[in-house]
């Protein structure tokens, strides 16, 4: 679990967060919602510590995760490398080895299996589809030992089937036997988010620094959504499934 209290952050003079409290629970898929430019990516960067929050008195940052993995929307990839080699990259970081040993190869195969890319391991990465490439990148995250994935619109621009596949995969990763992987996603499609997410963080437009966060059933109210996006929504709840429609 990550718990940030009294978060203050500004770019030059523009205040992005003012005394905001953010919580990311373990073992759940968390979705960050909000219009463009309210600071969704900024929040992720503060979590990865790429950006530094203002050190005020009440500020506290509590992190129970071992390792984080941040994945942007259109990650570039090298050419002329097989998916297997692409993933084995992670192991060169430490030590002086030129080749992977058997147990490391086994780990790569396992990660490939977990992201459902095992049958494509000899294919060059540039020939993977956008969805498959993001899966391969997530396998990189798995291999690096991350137990928190921060996916910055990483599943946007993907067709429905791939999106669903990735969510199913993320759901499976939550309950991986050697320690589950929590995912945080920035999304724009409210309906898909409502379908797959369990915990929601909404960042409000206009009112800087205001954050709404709640479990799924408490989050999707007309008031909350109107506060976040500034327009009216119609919310239908069909046997626990939530459908959201913008009005006017």
């Amino acid at each position: 679990m990550i718990k940030i209290e009294e978060l203050n952050f500004k770019y030059n003079d523009e205040i992005i967060f003012e005394n905001a409290d953010v919580e990311i629970p373990s073992g759940k898929i968390t979705v960050i919602l909000g219009p463009n430019g309210v600071g969704k990516t900024t929040l992720l960067k503060i979590i990865t510590k790429s950006l530094k929050a203002q050190a005020t008195k009440g500020f506290s940052f509590q992190n129970d995760f071992k390792k984080m993995f941040y994945l942007p929307q259109n990650a570039s990839c090298p050419t002329g490398v097989s998916t297997f080699d692409y993933l084995s990259t992670v192991f060169f970081k430490n030590g002086w080895k030129w080749f992977l040993n058997e147990s490391e190869k086994e780990l790569v195969n396992k990660a490939l299996y977990e992201v459902e890319l095992f049958d494509k391991k000899d294919l060059n990465v540039e020939n993977l589809s956008a969805g498959e490439l993001q899966k391969a990148n997530m396998a990189l995250g798995l291999l690096s030992g991350a137990d928190l994935f921060l996916l910055d619109e990483a599943v946007s621009n993907m067709d429905l089937i791939n999106e669903i596949k990735i969510f199913n995969m993320l759901n499976k990763l939550l309950y991986k036997e050697d320690g589950g992987v929590t995912s945080v996603l920035i999304m724009h499609d409210i309906n898909t988010a409502a379908n797959f997410g369990e915990y929601f963080i909404g960042i409000k437009k206009g009112k800087k620094g205001k954050i709404v966060q709640a479990r799924k059933d408490e989050f999707f109210t007309k008031e909350n959504l109107k506060e976040i996006y500034g327009i009216d929504f119609e919310i239908t709840n069909l046997n626990g499934k939530i459908y959201v429609q913008a009005v006017g």
Partner: peptide, 24 residues
């Protein structure tokens, strides 16, 4: 060079893929 060459493979990854504690 031979010592460090395999590490060059890491740098061909997208630099935005941040592994926390390893902004090395």
């Amino acid at each position: 060079c031979a010592l460090f060459i395999p590490k060059l493979n890491i740098l061909r990854l997208d630099s935005r893929l941040v592994f926390q504690n390893e902004q090395g």
